[in-house]
Amino acid sequence: MNNHEIDYKLHGDDMQFVEIELDPQETVIAEAGSLMMMEDQIRMETIFGSGSDDQQGGLMGKLLGAGKRVITGESLFMTTFTNEGSGKKHASFAAPYPGKIIPMDLSEINGKLICQKDSFLAAAKGVAIGIEFQKKVGTGFFGGEGFIMQKLEGDGMAFVHAGGTMYKKVLEPGETLRVDTGCLVAMTGDVDYNIEFIGGVKTALFGGEGLFFATLRGPGTVWTQSLPFSRLASRVFAAAPEKGGSQGEGSIAGGLFGLLGGDRK
């Protein structure tokens, strides 16, 4: 095993967090800002790059790893949490919005997982977090999330987050699944993946489902989510009052203020 072997426990239902148990000198890496709480004698350190032990090239290697993360829209930095005590310690990491945290044992899926750029939450020290380029140029220009995705490589535990309800689909050889690009959470490295145009001007303009979808072809395993954060954010933005703040949508007074264009003090 090249990765630290960590134990964990999931808490909650729709707003989950993962509690990771660290033996002495064990380390977990996480996205900046995902920490919920940690016990004493755990040292927190901000690092450049992927967090993998085999990152080579000194400063230039670290800068390259950090640059790859910037391409995916993530922070330049990651954070490590190391147990420097003599007994077991715990650190917990929270999901960023309602959904499910999915534990992934990379040793059981041939050491590689491809996931959406914002779904990674935490992983055992030694898991390399990089980027996955798709071979077809059209995927990059038109796919949004499709062209550049994160890849997690190693043989340890990793934790990714799915919005809403998570669905796991095992694809048989040659079996095809079409997914809204935002609803794709993760897939194993053996899945053949491409972005396709929906087709039909009327459907593209008025269908309300976007212009492109992901076509996934087996064999392999795919994880999807029912509520991508982008979809949730667009609904919240569309429902927000133009002048900011709630006017009490469910009340007569709120409706009256909205009709009169007045502000509540």
Rank of each mutant, 00 (worst) to 15 (best):
R43V: 13
G156W: 02
K243L: 15
G163A: 07
G57A: 15
A122S: 06
E145Q: 13
A30P: 00
S251W: 08
G67Y: 04
V28A: 11
S86Y: 10
S234L: 07
L171H: 03
L177I: 12
V236N: 09
D180F: 06
G245Y: 09
Y193C: 01
I252N: 09
F213D: 00
Q225P: 03
G65V: 00
T188M: 01
G144P: 01
I102F: 08
I47G: 12
K89A: 05
P24F: 12
G255I: 01
E21Q: 13
F81K: 01
S92Q: 11
G208W: 11
G258W: 05
S234C: 03
G261N: 05
D7C: 06
D118S: 13
F81R: 05
R43M: 14
E249G: 06
G140H: 08
F81G: 02
V191W: 04
F257M: 13
Q150Y: 08
D105V: 00
A233D: 09
T215C: 12
D14E: 14
F81E: 06
T188D: 02
V18F: 00
G49R: 06
P173H: 04
A162F: 13
L177A: 09
V127Q: 04
V201L: 10
E74F: 09
L10E: 01
L152M: 04
G164P: 02
